[in-house]
Write a protein that binds this DNA or RNA. Structure first.
Length: 504
RNA sequence: GGGUCGGUGGUCUAGCUUGGUAUGAUUCUUGGUUCGGGACCAAGAGGUCGCGAGUUCAAAUCUCGUCCGGCCCA
């Protein structure tokens, strides 16, 4: 018996080793998402978790190059809508941080403080590392906003923020320092502020969905889940491969709460001094990047959209010793052609064999690979391979630039459609606890009648969380929904239709 | 925050039960042969076994603490 077991286990170990040697990357994203995510961060060189401070992670070129592109695309969209960039200091004096009561209560547990300098010399006033920048920016806004002619004031900054998260951290998706854009806007009226919230949600769809290919569902959050100090929070959720939803950009209607706390007043057209209304919007680029690779990736690794890939095309030369020089010349010619057309292209002239390079760049998610050998050279063609569908075609050199541009467009469309297909059938109607639990456990989003999203609905929400593991994501704002019946938990008449899912 | 499992060259890993010279692969460097789906040969480099304390003649190994990480749960 023991002999038999020993023989068994030896065989298992051996085959495991063979497997891992064969594959640069081969993990089922659907079946084992946590492992998939951790391994791809390491193998594709996205982030290095060995920094040694909890929740702080160095990001590496392959992820940073894509995140830079994402920043640029996002900022371009904001600038098209009349937002202008600015940069504020990282530190916030304590006296400013605590000016808005609900805000300070919400964020203080997560604040990193600077309380001394040099060899233990205490600061007169503690400085917070910004967990978000309202309390840094708004004292200045109070100085900048004087007249109705100064409004609307629409500004944003690209920066990192610091939050001592209690939830378990992981690269990109939840760090204690993360990269984002935060937009802070001031308006004359609440109506204008509310219109800005809708514009932000449009921007989210335009950038996150149309350009990054990540489908989202937009919710108005409940009162217990809103931004501390705000009036209402609206946020886009997307679905991760493990069936949990994750919050992507959120936008907040701040009403005049912060204007009152920070004394942001303007003189209106009737020469009256009145409080302004504000909104803020915070797309976290590092988190969106984490969601992006998770949504698009497959069991062989990353699948980067053409728009976001650091290299849109990688050239793999194939040659024998006797024709190496000619093939490389042809490759350089091809590379120059693409560079002149503004395509991000990389010629892989490493020692490794073509087969190894194929697998490596597939794992890294480069959308298009050009294979160039003696055959292509003599025919004046290139072989193009698309990572998303793993398909090859031969294209004449004369047409290749326009072909690649069209192919890139098609790849982005395909990735987006595949992601959107996963959203179909996601919503399941339920009006009993058991049904909610079933739906949530299958990675679905349950749509249920619920008493209220005001604060006195919190107890019912906690009961749902305890019994099903799902959280209330909020109510829809893009569709009007009238509840029918009673609250699933308390039996009071339902005032809202809410959505329940497991979440990050 | 609670539970649980873990930390050995850059990476993965053997050794830990039963304390006594650190195992293998891969990566990396150099040279050579290769190159249309994961090539090969030769030589070389690389580890205070996470950190700290304790037990011991002796600790990767046993004990305690601590930091970091994975997973599950709140």
């Amino acid at each position: 018996m023991s002999e038999f077991l020993e023989a068994e286990s030896t065989v298992t170990v051996k085959s495991k080793q063979d497997e891992s040697r064969k594959a640069i990357f081969n993990i089922s994203k659907e079946k084992n998402f946590p492992e998939w995510f951790g391994e791809i961060c390491k193998v594709a060189e996205l982030a290095d978790i060995r920094y040694g401070v909890k929740g702080f992670t160095p990001f590496l070129p392959w992820s940073v190059m894509s995140m830079e592109i994402m920043f640029d695309l996002y900022e371009a969209a904001l600038q098209r809508k009349d937002h202008l960039p600015m940069l504020f200091p990282t530190v916030i004096p304590e006296s400013n941080l605590i000016k808005e009561a609900e805000h300070v209560e919400g964020f203080t547990p997560q604040v990193f403080w600077i309380s001394e300098v040099g060899t233990g010399e205490r600061l007169e006033e503690r400085l917070a590392l910004r967990p978000t920048s309202e309390t840094a920016i708004y004292p200045m806004y109070a100085l900048w906003v004087r007249s109705w002619r100064d409004l609307p004031l629409k500004r944003y900054q690209r920066c990192s923020v610091f939050r001592s998260e209690v939830k378990s951290t992981r690269p990109f998706l939840r760090g204690r320092e993360f990269l984002w854009i935060e937009s802070h806007n001031v308006f004359a009226t609440h109506e204008e502020a509310k219109a800005q919230v809708l514009e932000d949600l449009e921007t989210t769809k335009e950038v996150v969905t149309e350009q990054f290919g990540i489908p989202v569902m937009v919710f108005k959050r409940t009162q217990w889940d809103k931004f501390p100090g705000g009036v209402n929070t609206y946020a886009a959720d997307t679905l991760m491969p493990d069936g949990k939803v994750i919050q992507l950009p959120s936008t907040h209607d701040l009403g005049d709460n912060f204007a009152r706390a920070f004394d942001i007043k303007y003189v209106n057209e009737d020469n009256e001094l009145v409080y302004a209304y504000q909104t803020c919007y915070g797309p976290a680029i590092s988190r969106i990047y984490g969601a992006m690779i998770s949504v698009h990736g497959d069991d062989k690794g990353l699948r980067l959209p053409y728009k976001l890939a650091p290299y849109q095309v990688v050239i793999v030369p194939i040659f024998k010793v006797e024709n190496e020089e000619d093939v490389m010349d042809y490759c350089h010619r091809f590379r120059n052609l693409l560079q002149q057309a503004g395509i991000r292209v990389y010629l892989d002239d490493d020692e490794a064999t073509p087969g190894w390079k194929f697998n490596y760049w597939e794992m890294k998610g480069v959308p298009i690979r050009a294979e160039i050998g003696p055959r292509e050279m003599s025919e004046e063609t290139v072989v193009l391979f698309r990572r998303d569908l793993m398909k090859r075609e031969t294209v004449p050199l004369a047409d290749v630039v326009s072909h690649i541009v069209a192919l890139g467009e098609d790849i982005d469309q395909t990735l987006r459609k595949q992601a959107e297909a996963k959203f179909e059938g996601l919503i399941v109607d339920a009006d009993r606890m058991g049904e909610i639990r079933d739906a949530v456990e299958r990675g679905k989003i349950a749509r249920i009648p619920f008493c209220t999203t005001e604060m006195d609905g919190l107890e019912c929400a906690e009961e749902i969380k305890a019994q099903t593991g799902g959280e209330i994501r909020g109510t829809r704002i893009d569709v009007e929904e009238k509840p029918d019946g009673v609250c699933v938990v308390c039996g009071r008449p339902a005032r809202e239709v809410v959505y329940v899912a497991r979440s990050y």
